[in-house]
Design a binder for these strands. Structure first.
Lengths: 69, 69
DNA sequence: ATTTAATGTCAAATATATTTGACATTATGT
DNA sequence: ACATAATGTCAAATATATTTGACATTAAAT
């Protein structure tokens, strides 16, 4: 799962991981894991993140080759 | 989690639950659960579904009041 | 130089998504 | 009326997301 959450976190509001985590009520480790991209979050979190960062799920997360079926 | 997966499944390609499940390599029960809306699928599945049905994650899934934080 | 905030990472525990199998009900076709 | 496909639903098992806690490292501020 490719993501540019980190880019948006900085460019949009310059939030810390902790601030972003608090905004959507998850742990900071969850944000870390998502940014590392090795991890398949729920669509609910994805929608909340996209909403907070004024963008879309598709813009924030992209499938990679290995994800296609 | 509000969804109109069912609507898209019919309107776009008139697929059966089983056909759609096969296309994205999940079980039929997963499709059933998603359509029932009581269930928070992964963003990877959401992206695959949106892709197969020629739409977006936001169009397919919407947060409800209780989901907002 | 020293404090403080931000980040990276690990492991264990817990919650929840997803699968598998099985059976009942409803719709569709012949 | 009968067969077949599609759907609804349940429970148990398994896989994986998410949390919690703890500690190390890096960046920023004073």
């Amino acid at each position: 799962m490719k993501t540019n959450l980190r880019k948006y976190r900085f460019e949009q509001d310059d939030l810390s991981q902790q601030q972003l985590a608090d905004m959507i009520k998850v742990s900071r480790q969850t944000i870390v894991a998502i940014e590392r991209g090795d991890y398949n979050l729920s669509v609910k979190l994805a929608l909340l993140l996209a909403r907070k960062l004024n963008t879309t799920v598709e813009e924030l997360f992209q499938l990679e080759e290995k994800d296609y079926v």
